[in-house]
Structures are given as structure tokens and as C-alpha cells.
Design a protein around this nucleic acid. Sequence first.
DNA 1: TATGAATGAGACTTCATTCAT
DNA 2: AATGAATGAAGTCTCATTCAT
Lengths: 210, 210, 210, 210
Amino acid sequence: MPKISYKQREGRRQQILEAALACFAEDGFHQTGMADIVKRSGLSHGAVYLYFQSKDDLIEALADDRHRRETVLNSVAQGSGDPIEGLHALVRVYAQWLTDPAGEARRRVGIHGWAEALRNRRVRTSVVEGIDMPRALIVALIERGQHAGLIKRDLSADAIARVLIAIFQGFVLQKCWGEDVDVEACMAAVAGVIEGFRATKSDMKRRTRA
Amino acid sequence: MPKISYKQREGRRQQILEAALACFAEDGFHQTGMADIVKRSGLSHGAVYLYFQSKDDLIEALADDRHRRETVLNSVAQGSGDPIEGLHALVRVYAQWLTDPAGEARRRVGIHGWAEALRNRRVRTSVVEGIDMPRALIVALIERGQHAGLIKRDLSADAIARVLIAIFQGFVLQKCWGEDVDVEACMAAVAGVIEGFRATKSDMKRRTRA
Amino acid sequence: MPKISYKQREGRRQQILEAALACFAEDGFHQTGMADIVKRSGLSHGAVYLYFQSKDDLIEALADDRHRRETVLNSVAQGSGDPIEGLHALVRVYAQWLTDPAGEARRRVGIHGWAEALRNRRVRTSVVEGIDMPRALIVALIERGQHAGLIKRDLSADAIARVLIAIFQGFVLQKCWGEDVDVEACMAAVAGVIEGFRATKSDMKRRTRA
Amino acid sequence: MPKISYKQREGRRQQILEAALACFAEDGFHQTGMADIVKRSGLSHGAVYLYFQSKDDLIEALADDRHRRETVLNSVAQGSGDPIEGLHALVRVYAQWLTDPAGEARRRVGIHGWAEALRNRRVRTSVVEGIDMPRALIVALIERGQHAGLIKRDLSADAIARVLIAIFQGFVLQKCWGEDVDVEACMAAVAGVIEGFRATKSDMKRRTRA
DNA sequence: TATGAATGAGACTTCATTCAT
DNA sequence: AATGAATGAAGTCTCATTCAT
């Protein structure tokens, strides 16, 4: 017979995760002390350990949380008709995510997670799965486009997907460092990049000849 | 009157920096202990502190080191004639840097530096300058190309530069996480992206009409 | 007006004491957590604290419990006729207690209690009284035997009693450490020891001469 | 090139072990904090961990220390001629050890070690070896005596050894609890016990008949 | 210059106990 | 009476840095 309801329990969990997120965003995983998280959460040391086994558990919970959110993010732009339009839609979704002021902390923690992924297997798995998801999505779109003759065939679908993902990873970095990034303009450039993948008449001719 | 020659002193410094680089690459800045660096350098605690004031100083020295190396890297592809060819040349240089097995540690430490840049002003400055350098280079090339009618004019030069830089940042991440990145194919895709920025006849017409 | 019957209350108390006994036997007093006892008892933290004021209270209750059981044990072999036979009877009773498999936990906790007695006055009192009881019994038997000329007079009754008690204390240790103790043989040796205390003809002569 | 000599280092080690011994004697292993040991040793927290890996390491070092001292203790009474006299010699050695005021702390820690042996394999091994040493010694003496017809043959040598060892274990307990033990008288009783093992004329007759 | 033993603040985590429900 | 979530002091241990040698 639990003393508090599932909802209450989940609320406390979120309270702690939010505190951890804020702390980690400010100072990174390893420069943040449990005391910081405890203080920020408004709970006690013991209470935090009632919900998470360890600091690492907290880090991994946030990694999982991020993973879950990205799953949702990707699902948004899944079943479009026109592949090229699908890519544009995906870019719009990620652009929105990139500029959402409420997501700043999450983006910063994301970067710390990228570094942590280099030495923590569990975090790496979560991070890699997090980019494999959109990659699979993009690859599917591109291959469909290539089949339909809408996208250049001389480029590897996987490579294109990696390029698009890399662009967003780089943007996250540049934005979080406080660079004066004109996201509008950048998105236009990305749109240009995508348009650049569109098969031209000469591509079709070349293909016919080949 | 220095007790040891400049050359000796510089040698010791490098010895320490190399040890630090190796340790940081493995475990990140904050999970690496000074003891690890001391052991790996083959020197003593005291000796390390004779050359560097603190662990942060060491981190910042490595950031500066990176900055210096990137300056050299950029200078390679500076004065080309054809702007588009210049971009391709730059990409080749960075692609080489990306795949150099000897640079793995540096790339990993670079990622840790990206995270550290979020909380250490000095590191951030170094990192940001490190991307501002190639950015200025790329912007110059592109603006030259746009003036000459070789590159589409409807895209911001800065945005294009940021996209290209972002691509490489993302590639560093994806490679260092152990992803199975086909760098050749990716570089072809990047080349395709650059070609996509090339002004077409319709662009010219559009421009004439405008 | 108690809310639950005395019987129920006593049942709960025993339930807790049994859980504590099992835990303490496994891990000692200070390495056992209240949480372990709570879990093993099947009750709640709060419930345990309704019956015992503190962990120390629990430890002391078990010490008292032991004390009470030993009182019973001693009373068994009290009023024999022949003093020597009385000693043998006492040894048999303790030998039985030593080999009873169901008493293993109690013996182990007993040892932890011996250590605890060094720093907890209340536990020490309980332990010391626990050995003073059989000691008094043995002293009485021996003095009776010495008066009757059945037991050597040149040995202090108290010393003999302490020796006999010490033997059993040592056996508890050796058995609980998992030593391969042949209890039968040891009891035979103890019987031999007791027989050794029997006055011989030469003792009687010596006494007459003195 | 060590900064301090072996002697200095060993001195520090002893300093810490002595502090630990005093603390453990007072409060047991698990109620003693590292802070207590640190304070008593006059060193710093870090210094203690420079010499011992952990609190458990400290406990085990003391167990080993005890083991080493007991080896010396046993070696004292090894090669006697007359087996019975050998037993008496051994008893005298242990009696001395038992009454040495400077050994009080060690005896108390010994008791805590007996309890700890129930749950710490390493400590148990050390403790058990510590009693196996004198046991082997006693068994050898007794078997020699039995062969020579000086000691009763109907008692197991091992059992007699265990009895003698148990006696001293029990004495340690009784003394450390502050009992008013008349060690002189007890030793006389133990001597009596040993004399009781001596083969009598009737034993010899019985043996001849058998 | 160079050493490495020493420092001590602070890291993470546990756990006996309480108290609102 | 009974629950179990919450508390927070205290536990063990680490580690960047210093300083006597």
C-alpha cells in the first residue's frame, strides 16, 4: 500500500529531474554536486536517493528522458508524402526545437551528454540511439526520393542523413555557446542544402544514358 | 636566470600536455585526476605545478593549443582562386583532420572542450574563436563567389559558413562515438552540398529580372 | 485501554525480535540496518518503533531474552545430588545447547553480544549476569564437593567454575567460525577435565597430613 | 626515490595502527569512525588513506598484526622436552599475555575481531589461523605425550587442544568484561586440568590389559 | 628545480529515526 | 495502531593543491 499516489511520486521524480537538469545545464554532470541538486529540488538528500539510486542514475534518467522526447519529436514528421517535403518538415521540427527558449537547459545538458557519451556506455547508447532514430527516418525518405527519381542518386542516403543530423548538432553547439546565430537564415541555408539534393534534368539524362 | 634551458622547459611542458591530452581524451576533464596526469607524464606532482598553475590552467592550455593548431589548419586553404574550389579545398583539409588516426585523442578532447565551453569563459572564448576563424574564411570565399555570380545570392554567407562548420562538428561527434561513419561518402555529400550552392542559370536569370 | 490484545502485542514483539535475531546473526548489530529488520519482520518502520524505542533497545531486548533463556537452561541442572554428577549434567545441558542447530543464530548473536558488551553497559550487565548464574551454580556444586572430600581442595571453586564456563565460551566461538569441531570428543575431554578435579586418595592423605 | 625512509614510513603506519587499535578497542570496528582514528593518530584524513586503502584494510591489517604476534607467542613454547611441561609452558606464556596491562586494547580488539570473523572472510581466516597455530602445537605435544605413555590415551588430542584454547578464549572475554578474575587461581586450575590429563598408574594397567 | 608526502574541504551515499496521514 | 516517505547528520573516501626537503 503506497503512502503516496503514483501521480505524487511521479511529480517528485520530475521535481528532482528538473532540478538536476538545471544544475547539469549550468555546470555539467561532474561539476554539479548532489548538494546542488538537493538544494535546487527543495527536497532533502535522503529524498533524492529515494527516487534515484545514484548521481549516475540521475544522469542516465535524463539521458533516457531526452531519448523519449526525441522519439516524440521524430514521430511528428514521419509519414509525409513527398520525400523532399518530408525532409523540409523534419528540419522545421528540429529548427523549432532548436529555438525553443524553454529547451535551452535541455540542449546544454545534451552537449554535456555528448561528452559523457565518450566514457559512459549507457549514455552513449542512449545518445547514439537518439541520432539513429532520425537517421533511419531520413534515410527512408531519401531512398524513397531516389527511387522516385526526385533525389540525386549519386549520393549515399546514409551520408546525406548524417550531414543533415550533423548540421543540427553543430547548430546546437553554436547556439549554446552564445554565438549570434541567425537561425532563420541558417534554416534557409539548410533548405537550400536539401533543394541541392533534388535531382535535376541533367541528372535524369545522365541516368538515362548510364 | 633560468636554471634550465628554454628548450628543456618547453619539452617538459609538452610532455605534460601530451599526458593530459591522453587522460582527458579517455575520461574527460573532470573525471581525470591530476594524479593520472602526473603518472602518465612520468613527472611529479610538484613538477606539473611548476609548469601549470592548476588543472584549469592545463585545460585552458590545451584549448589554446587546439586554437593554435586550427589557425595553422585554416591558413592552409586560404588564398585559393576559385571560391567554390576554395570551399572544396577547405573541406578536404578538414576531412583529412577528421580521419587522421593520430588526432583521435585531440578530437575527443575537443568534444569535452565543447561541453566545458558552456561553463568556462576562457575555454568558450578559445572554442568560439576556433570556429570564427574558418567562418570568416568561408564567409569571405562565399561573398567573393556571390559577387562573381558563382554562388547563389539568396543565401546568407554567414549561414552557409555556419552550416559547413556545423557539418564538421557533427561529424566529429558521430565518429568519436564509434559510429560507423563512411567518411568518403559523407565528404561526397558535403561536396554535393557545396555544389548545391553554386548559382544556376535560373538563378542568374532571376537575378537579372530582379 | 489497549487497542490490541496483549497476546497480539506480544506476538508482534516476537516477530520483530526474531527478524532482528536473524539479521544480527548474519551481519552483526552495527552492519544490520533497521531497514533489514523491518523487511524481514514483514512490518513497517513505524511498527517496529512502536514496540522498540531504538535499535539499541532491540539489541538490549535480545540480550535480555538470552539472559532469560539461560536462566531456564541453568535451572535444569540445579538440584542434583552428587556434585561431580551435577557438573557432568550441567555440561550435558550446555553441550546440547551448543549443538542444537536451531540455536545457531542465537549463538552467533551471542558472540556479537560479547563484543557489544565491551561498549554497552546494559548489554555487558546482561552478559555478565548470564555467566554469573552458572558460575554460582558451579561454585556451589564444587564447594559442596570439596566439603564432602570428593573434589580437590587445592583449587579455587571460582577458578574451576570460570574454567568450565570459559571452555563453553571458546567452543561457541570455534563452532560458529565453522571450525570442524568434534563436539563428542570435546565433551569427552571436558568430562575428563571434570574427573580430573575429583579428589584422589593421595589428595586425601595430603589433606590429612596437612 | 621515496621522499621518506622506510623507517619513517613504517613509523607512520604504526602510528595509525595504534590509533586504530585504541579506537577499535573502545568502540568496536563499526562504531569507530575514520574521523576518530584520524583525530587520534594526529594525522590528516588523507594521510591515513595514504597508508591504508580503506577502513576494512585497517581492520585486516590489525588482524594480520595480531596473527603475526601470535606466531611469535607460539614460537616461544615450541621445542620443550617433556610434553606436559610444554603444555604448562604454553599456558604460562598465554597467562602472561592475558595479564599484560599493555595488551588490554589488543585483547579487546581481539574480541571485536571474533565477532567480525563471523561476517568477514578475511578476518575469519586470520582468526582461525591464529588458533590453528597453537592447536597444532598442543596436538603435537599431546600426541608425543600419549605415545610416551605420559598422557591419557582415551582422549582425542585435538579435543584437548580445543579445550585448552577455549579456556583462554573464555578468559579473555571474562577479563575484558571487567570481571574480577583471579588469574593466579585460574592458572592453577588450568595447571590442574593439564595434570588431570596425565596418565595414572591405573591408565597404564588398563592399557596393558587392553 | 624537483619531489612526493601531506592536507582538508568536499564528494557521494546511508540510515536511524520521525511524523503526517 | 500502523504506514512509509521524508529527514539530515554522519559516514567513508577522493583529490587539487601545497611545501618541507
